[in-house]
Simulated scan of single mutants.
Amino acid sequence: MITLTSVELNAWLAALLWPLSRVLGLITASPLFGNSAVPVSVKISLGVVLTTIMAPALGTLPAVDPMSMPGMLILVQEMLIGLAMGFTMRVVFAAIEMAGEISSLTMGLGFASFFDPNTAGRSSAVSQMLTLIATMAFLAMNAHLVLLEALAESFVSMPISATPMAVGAPLELARWGGKIFSTGLQLSLPIVAALLITSVALGILTRAAPQLNLFGVGFPVTLTVGFLMLGVTLPYLNMPIQNWFNQGIEASRNIGRAAAARTPGRPVLPAP
Rank of each mutant, 00 (worst) to 15 (best):
V40T: 14
T131F: 13
I74M: 07
A152Q: 11
P272L: 05
S21K: 02
L24S: 10
F93G: 00
M89Q: 09
L16I: 12
V200C: 15
A120Q: 11
N35V: 05
F155G: 11
L205T: 13
S157M: 03
A143N: 03
P267E: 02
L145P: 00
V38I: 12
P164Q: 07
G59P: 15
A271G: 11
L132D: 08
I204R: 05
G265C: 08
A169S: 13
R266W: 00
A11Y: 10
V23M: 03
N10L: 06
I191P: 05
L132W: 08
S123E: 09
S41V: 15
W244P: 04
S103C: 13
L223R: 11
M85C: 05
A134F: 08
A169N: 12
S154A: 10
M1F: 08
T119K: 07
P56W: 07
V217K: 09
P117H: 06
A99C: 09
V221A: 11
L195A: 02
A201N: 12
S45A: 15
P190Y: 05
S103K: 03
M165V: 06
V64Y: 13
M67G: 11
A63C: 03
D65H: 15
L80M: 15
G108R: 06
A112W: 11
L58H: 05
I191Y: 03
A134R: 06
L20N: 10
G248V: 06
K43V: 03
A125H: 10
G34Q: 02
F245D: 01
V76P: 10
P117Q: 09
A209N: 07
I53N: 03
R122E: 08
N254V: 02
N254D: 08
T88C: 11
T106M: 11
L202I: 14
F93T: 01
I96F: 10
T222Q: 11
S154N: 04
V126Q: 12
T263V: 14
N246Q: 09
I2M: 11
L151Q: 03
G121M: 14
V146H: 11
L228R: 14
L17M: 14
E250Y: 04
A201Q: 14
S157F: 00
L109M: 15
S188Q: 09
T51V: 03
M129E: 02
F138K: 09
R175H: 12
G34Y: 06
K43Y: 04
L105D: 07
L234A: 15
L145E: 06
G256F: 05
P264Y: 01
T222I: 07
R122D: 09
T119D: 01
T263W: 03
A140D: 08
I74C: 02
F181V: 15
I255Y: 10
T51H: 03
T60W: 05
T206W: 06
I197Q: 11
W12P: 02
A201T: 09
S45K: 07
L32A: 13
S6R: 15
L148A: 01
L230N: 02
A84N: 05
N213E: 03
A137G: 08
T206V: 07
R90I: 01
L4M: 13
R122Q: 14
M136C: 02
L195K: 08
E149C: 02
P164D: 01
A143C: 06
